[in-house]
Structures are given as structure tokens and as C-alpha cells.
Design a protein around this nucleic acid. Structure first.
Lengths: 344, 344
DNA sequence: ATTGGCAGTCCGGTGCAAGGAGTGCCAGGC
DNA sequence: GCCTGGCACTCCTTGCACCGGACTGCCAAT
């Protein structure tokens, strides 16, 4: 059974180990922290902590190192989340304020978060289902390939290429037909909610003759796909920090880099993390469903875009990281981002 | 003075070292390659090669390793560029054929190139000055922020946000004014060459009264900037390969990752490399102007987009790499890409 | 020009001993 | 019942010496 003081010892071990990367022994603790008891007593507490799987010794007669479970305990019950310094707040504010388009703001934000935490930072592109269609543009790239561009009033621009069915020798649509189609589509769609696009387009399609109708249906499919596609991307920054913290990955950083390249998996993981009451979620080491990330921790926070939808922003790094500081940074950045995007 | 056979020895050393990562000695060479002379003779040749700075010994009495200069000699005079296997050709073809929009094609291409070479692959987004304006869309994001979207007939969509001057309390443009502006701009721009956009817009601006004019000038600036901006980006893939070849970076992969993140510098370097008669350019180790890349080599090839402009595609990896194979891969992929984009 | 031979150099692994850090446990004190 | 000092023990780390292996460079002979 771990005593009250035992938890304080755990906190000390985590802090010391995170700071020094050295397994920490009982003597170090009595020297560096004022517990008012002897090393032998600390040793008893440490034995209890080890019993409970909160710390482990790399080998007999070495200092202790926190386990994933130990970090979990630290994060849930022991870490006081430090407030950001005013200097840091200022940095965030000035960094984000030079507004530009959405992609740009996200790119800046994530770069800043990576600098703040010295870890890899990631942000999920927000979904904006409440926004309205501003314009749809069709561009014929070749007789059989059509570029569809969708512009919404939230400032998002998405594009998609559709392959046109090409039954006979002659192309299905020529420039004139396309111009008419464009006018019609814009006629019914401009001003509509994004969510209503598929239905509206469907009813338009029904008024058309068969060959033209197929084209319209494909365009409709592209437009709906375009909305979903976008949220399937992550913007990230600070990959170089992985090399900086390389010594904290006992294996190699290879699987981590692979996971980052394989955005899809990482994104799903990121999205499924559920925020706690502090607005941040932490996934530590082997808690993580991806084997390649068994030695990394992921922090995720949520931010709210103008349409009120929540997307994720967070950092990824070795399990040996400064949880207090990083949680604070993620939270602060997420808040500023919400504020910034809400203003628009 | 390096003899004829000396160069053959150099070739053998490079090939062997690239294959085995072991410094190669005279005995290895006579064993593995059929020179028909004794080890002592090879030793003499090696002494000459060392004299000329083409190879070096990590320490006294060890085998030799190619220097940057040695690799250079190998690449320029000794490497026969292997043709791609038919399997590889097939892979390239099928991989690239599922066309989509430009960004998508480039993303696929670069991913494939990284798999083909086991290195980091990069591609520069092509400039398309010969293409025509298809549509310009203006979206008011907030009273003082305007999103400008430019669609060209080459299938490119670019966006930019402009800050509007906001002199008095009331906004400079409202929805009605914007609609009129949009109509006017499209009226003069649609169908124009991209290169003519600034001039055309300028003459339109001159017909307008002062406040409206400022707005138009800003939009014009954004449109020209948008064209330049885009080519200032690289799409890359295969970063994980850096971790795989980590042992080939005597120092650390940190500076390499940093250079990759700092796209701007890398891009300039990439752009300034001049292609040789084989259509590929190679920059080896310290030849490289960036200190962080002193242990990496960069291969660059050119591809031609529909408008006939040339952009770069290439790979980046440790100086100890398979130059023959990688040059062949870059060249093959660049050709297919030119063909693919030319067709559209 | 090429060759075999030989001395010399350096790396890398191994075995051994000493030093140090840290633990576990126990018996005694508050 | 909790805390403490002490002690034996374990294991890592460092330094040292040593040896074998892999080369090279040079030289005299062909």
C-alpha cells in the first residue's frame, strides 16, 4: 500500500528523472527534497511504489525510474499545472495575432506550440459544417477530368478532381455545357449550408437528362467528399525535436517517425482521445494503441472553431517529458486559438 | 597521379563501401573483384587515390572510405546509371496513373520516389505562369479581412487573406460593394494570362475612386503574391528513412531534420542546382552550402509541367548512398511526371 | 610495373580489479 | 507502529593490460 508520503516520493522521482534522465535513488531524494526523514525510510516507500508498479529499477541496485503507470498517477493526481509565464503568454499572443488564412494560422500555431514544448506539435484541421457555400467553380482539365472547387464563407477553399465518364468518342461536356452547369449549380447552392449540399444537388440532378445527370452526380459526390477529406489531415511541426530527444527513446525514433508519416492512424488516435475536466487528454506509453508509440506520450487539447466545432491540437514526445509544462502549453495555445478563430 | 586501374579501384571501393558500410581494404578488393593483380599493387593504387584526396582512412591501418571528392569522381565518371527494372517501371506507372489534382499527384509521386530510393524525397510545386485566370472569388471573413481565391485553368487554386484598411468606424466594403468589385475583377481578368494580372488590375484600379482603389490594389498585391508564394513550398515524403539510415550520419540527423523543417533554405538550394546532361544534379556532402547538410547528398532532377516550366524533384540522404540507383530513380520518376502533367 | 614479405600501427574485444551507487533487510530506538 | 543507522550484497562503470586481427607502408627482388 502506498502511503501519503509515498505519493510525494513518486512526484519527486518523476520530477527528478524528467529533469536529469538519471534513475533516482533514495539518497538523491533526501538530499534534493526536504522530506525530513532518512534515506532508509524513503527506501521503504520506494519498495511500496515498486510493488504497485509505479516505479521500476533498470537493474538491481540502481535508482528508480517512473513506469507508464507512475507517469499516469503523476499526471492524474500529482502534477500541478503551472500557469504560463507572462512572457510566454505574450509570445503566444503576438505570434498568433498576425492573422492570415486558416491554414496559415494553424501552421503558425503548431510551430509555436512545438517551440514552447520542445516536442512535435500537431493540429487537426477543423470541420466547418455550419458554414455556407460561397461559390463553386468548375474547370475542365482535360476532356475527361474536371476540377471542382468549393469556396465557403468561413474562408475555406477545397478542391477535388472528378473523372468524367467518357462513353463515346466525343466528350461528355464541352465549355458551353460546363458554363451552363456552373451557373445552375451556383444558382442553387450559393448561400446554402454545407450540410445541405448533397440533397440540394440531388434534386437539381433529377431535373436533368441522363448523361448530364451523371456528371452532376459525380460533382455532388466530389463536393461531399471534399468536406470530409479535409479533416483527415494533420498539420505538424517540430519533427526535429524528435532527434533532440532521441536519447529518451530506448529503441529508436524510427517507429515514431513512421507513425507521423502514416497520418491516418495517428489522426484517428488523436481524435479518439477524450478530454478530461482540464480540457486536455494524455495518453502515456503503452496505454497507446499503436505499438510504434509504446515509448511516446501524446497530449491532446481541443479548440473551437468559429462554427463551434471542436478539433484537436496537441503534442507528441517521449514518455519522459515535462507533463506539467506541456499540459499548460497545450491548454493555453488551444484557448488562444479558440479565441482567435471565434473572433472571425 | 591516379592510373586507369586506380579509377577502377575507386569504383570498387565506392560500391563496396556503399554496400557494406565497412572501410574497404586491399585484400577485400582482390578477393571480391577480379583485378588480376595482387593486394600490394592495389595498395599502391590506393596510396595514389589517397594522395589525390579521393579516399581516406578513418585511422592508420584501416580500410579506406570514399571522400566527398571520391564520390564526386564516382558520380561524374565512374557510375553507370542502371536502367530501372521493368517491375519498377510498372510500379511507377500504376502508382502515378490514378490521377487526381496537382497536389495529390505530387504527393503520390514523392511518396513513391522515397520508397524507390529509401531516402527522403522532395518535390517543388511547379510555377505555372502560362496559365489563364479562370475565376477570382472574394470572401469577406470579417469587416477588415478579405479572402482572395484565384483559380486558374491549369487546375491550381490559391488563396490569400488581405487585411483591409479600416479608416473610420464603418467598414470600407460591404457585401454589395464586394459583389460589384467581384464582377468587375472577373470581367477584366478571366481569360487573362497569369503574368498579365498585375498590369490589368492596375489599369482597372486607376478608373476607381481613392478608397475603393486601395482595396483593389491590395487585392492585386495578394494575387501576384499568391503566384510566387506557392512555388516557395516543397512537398516531401520518407522522413522516416532518415532514421533508417541514421548510422550513416556520423554526427546526428538533427541538423538534417532542421534543414528539412526550414524549407526555405533547402528550397533555394534545390532550385539553384544546375542539371547536367543526364538531367540530374548531384550535390555531395560539403559541396553543399548548408553546414547542417555536410554529411548529406542531394540529387535533383527537373520535370516539366503542362505550361512547359521546369520544377525540381529529387532525393536527399547520407553521402553514403547508392548514387547509380538513385540517379536512375530520380530520372525515371521525373520523366513520368513530365509525361503525366504534359498530357493534361 | 608488380610482387611477396615483413614490421608497425591501430582498433576492438576480453578479462580482471577497484570504486561507487544504491538496494534490502534487520535490529534497535522513539 | 513507524523510523533509523548499519551492513552485506548486487550490479554498473571505469580503467588497465593484453591479445588477435586487419590493415598499411615500405623494400628488395622479379
Amino acid at each position: 500500500m502506498v502511503s501519503e508520503r509515498g505519493l510525494d516520493v513518486l512526484r519527486a522521482i518523476v520530477q527528478d528523472y524528467v529533469a536529469s534522465r538519471e534513475p533516482v535513488g533514495s539518497k538523491t531524494i533526501v538530499d534534493r527534497y526536504s522530506f525530513g526523514v532518512s534515506a532508509a525510510t524513503i527506501r521503504n516507500d520506494m519498495a511500496a511504489l515498486e510493488e504497485d508498479g509505479l516505479i521500476a529499477a533498470p537493474h538491481t541496485s540502481s535508482g528508480r525510474v517512473p513506469t507508464d503507470k507512475g507517469y499516469r498517477m503523476f499526471v492524474d493526481h500529482l502534477a500541478e499545472v503551472r500557469a504560463m509565464t507572462t512572457a510566454q503568454r505574450m509570445a503566444i499572443r503576438t505570434f498568433l495575432e498576425e492573422g492570415a488564412d486558416l491554414d496559415d494560422v494553424l501552421a503558425r500555431t503548431v510551430r509555436m506550440l512545438s517551440q514552447l514544448t520542445n516536442q512535435v506539435a500537431l493540429v487537426q484541421i477543423p470541420v466547418v459544417p455550419r458554414s455556407y457555400v460561397r461559390h463553386v467553380e468548375l474547370v475542365l482539365l482535360s476532356p475527361s477530368r474536371l476540377l471542382v472547387v468549393l469556396i465557403t464563407d468561413a474562408g475555406r477553399v477545397d478542391q477535388k478532381v472528378v473523372e468524367l465518364p467518357q462513353g463515346d468518342d466525343q466528350p461528355l461536356v464541352d465549355d458551353v455545357a460546363l458554363a451552363e452547369l456552373r451557373a445552375r449549380i451556383n444558382g442553387v447552392l450559393v448561400g446554402r449550408l454545407l450540410a445541405d449540399v448533397p440533397a440540394t444537388l440531388q434534386s437539381l440532378a433529377e431535373t436533368l437528362p441522363a448523361p448530364r445527370r451523371t456528371v452532376l452526380e459525380r460533382i455532388g459526390a466530389a463536393l461531399s467528399a471534399t468536406v470530409d477529406d479535409r479533416q483527415d489531415r494533420l498539420i505538424l511541426a517540430g519533427t526535429a525535436n524528435l532527434a533532440r530527444t532521441e536519447r529518451d527513446f530506448p529503441g529508436s525514433i524510427l517507429p515514431v517517425l513512421e507513425a507521423i508519416e502514416e497520418q491516418v492512424v495517428l489522426l484517428r488516435l488523436f481524435r479518439e482521445m477524450e478530454l478530461d475536466e482540464r480540457g486536455v487528454s494524455v495518453s502515456i506509453g503503452r496505454e497507446n494503441p499503436l505499438v510504434g508509440l509504446a515509448e511516446t506520450s501524446i497530449l491532446a487539447g481541443g479548440y473551437r472553431s468559429s462554427a463551434g466545432e471542436v478539433a484537436r491540437i496537441g503534442v507528441l514526445g517521449p514518455t519522459r517529458m515535462d507533463y506539467s509544462g506541456n499540459i499548460a502549453a497545450v491548454r493555453a495555445v488551444a484557448r488562444y486559438l479558440s479565441k482567435l478563430l471565434g473572433e472571425e
